[in-house]
Design a protein around this nucleic acid. Structure first.
Lengths: 244, 244
DNA sequence: GTATTTATCGTCACCTTGACAATAAGTCGG
DNA sequence: CCGACTTATTGTCAAGGTGACGATAAATAC
């Protein structure tokens, strides 16, 4: 915070959002098809310019809402990190602050804005090169995935992918999709229900599905996002992903 | 990354650095005394404007070097997060990208630049209100401390506070200073030397200090920062700080 | 009703951790 | 040089957590 001798530059600042969800057991990311240059016709992360007087997180939420046509954003939104400003946009130096949304599956209006239209894509298709992203968005997605994976280990945020109430199996499906591994249902059940300040039994059960009905849980009070505060409680000891 | 209807704003972008080190068993942070307004005479994090065509990490390193008079920066520098742009600088909206440096104790030239002069301060003095920081730097410091604490748990970065070679006791002193707890020397020794891909025995020993000489270790090959790559190896299982 | 599916509870061996005893190998003060 | 002291390092042991997997419970599917 010292004044420069050299000329300070002003940069256009954008916010981008890596919105992740689990659909049909697979991790999906929300992408927009760019309708304008640069990268017209290519897929990219949703995002846009920060407006004067706007906070970063607010801007990220606003852009995502605009481009998906969603009213109130579900899930958990947090800052991921900043990229640039050098050499990431052919139009010039642009700084972007990437964000991460972990959310239950929600429907997107394909024609959310006249500049882009949004849809969910399996993350696997991006990672294996089947789908290419504009700008440096593949790198951002890759960082977001690593962040999401590690968040599940030590925070209760896996539940952000579920609705308000969910079964242990649904939560396990989230972990399996994000980590890309299978987990033993019995051991996961033990850990999830045995970890203090994580889950709370609602007393209700599922019905209608195949197999034995499952108990419905919700996030424990201590694990829910307090107003304005960061996510507080941690999983201790953590629920580590298998490393081989 | 969608074009805006509303006017995109251009923001001045600064980089700030929370440089942490351990001196005399206490965690210290590098602060500069502001010689100009705003906040003239107050303490603040070192930092400054990002120049055109400059990367964030580069800018952070450059500013820190300028304000401390240090040639090559020691330790580990990483991005912490971005703050703003709203309401954090009386002169107007400024976005800042905060960084975190974990480094061995290094001497700073008090008169590093004509805009500020730098010195190490015990973190405790800031946290207990004995020393106040300008801008929103207390919040940034607080986020940096939490990041540092958690980094020690699952990454080998505690060693970034030490020199190239260090004893287990020196490393333990780092953990104790950052976490603000005492650790059992015998259990810490077992964990540090027993964790794969963490430490490497140099075969050499300390001499001259009180007590039995200690073996000197260095970071294991796998735990050292590969060129351009993020810090790779993790402590698995992690070395969790005591929670009470 | 029987097979199938999914949920949940238990068991057991192994590993890690926290608490703490014991020993090793220097310096320090005389 | 000696005993006192300091710090490093090796062990021991019990408690807790985890992975592998058996067994049972309670639905749906045929």
């Amino acid at each position: 915070m010292t004044e420069p001798h050299p000329l300070p530059a002003r940069f256009p600042v954008t916010v981008d959002v890596v919105a992740l969800t689990v659909r049909d057991g697979a991790l999906n990311v929300l992408l927009i098809t760019r309708l304008i240059d640069p990268f017209r016709g290519q897929l990219a992360l949703p995002g846009g310019f920060v407006l004067a007087g706007e906070e970063l997180l607010t801007a990220a939420g606003r852009e995502l809402a605009e481009e998906t046509g969603v009213g109130r954003l579900p899930g958990h939104l947090e800052q991921l990190g900043s990229y640039g400003p050098k050499g990431r946009d052919p139009r010039g130096d642009v700084l972007t602050v990437a964000h991460l949304l972990l959310a239950p599956d929600f429907p997107v209006l394909a024609a959310g804005s006249d500049a882009a239209h949004a849809a969910w894509y399996p993350v696997r298709q991006v990672m294996n090169g089947e789908v290419r992203l504009a700008f440096d968005h593949e790198r951002i997605l890759s960082d977001a995935l690593e962040r999401a994976k590690s968040k599940l280990e030590y925070s209760p945020l896996g539940a952000a992918f579920c609705g308000l109430e969910f079964t242990i199996a649904q939560l396990r499906a989230v972990y399996e999709a994000v980590w890309g591994t299978r987990l033993d249902p019995r051991n996961f059940h033990r850990k999830a229900t045995g970890t203090p300040d994580f889950l709370e039994d609602t007393g209700r059960m599922t019905a209608g599905d195949a197999g034995r009905p499952a108990a419905l849980y919700r996030l424990a009070e201590a694990a829910r996002p307090a107003a304005g505060q960061p996510a507080r409680a941690v999983l201790n000891p953590p629920l580590m992903r298998p490393r081989d």
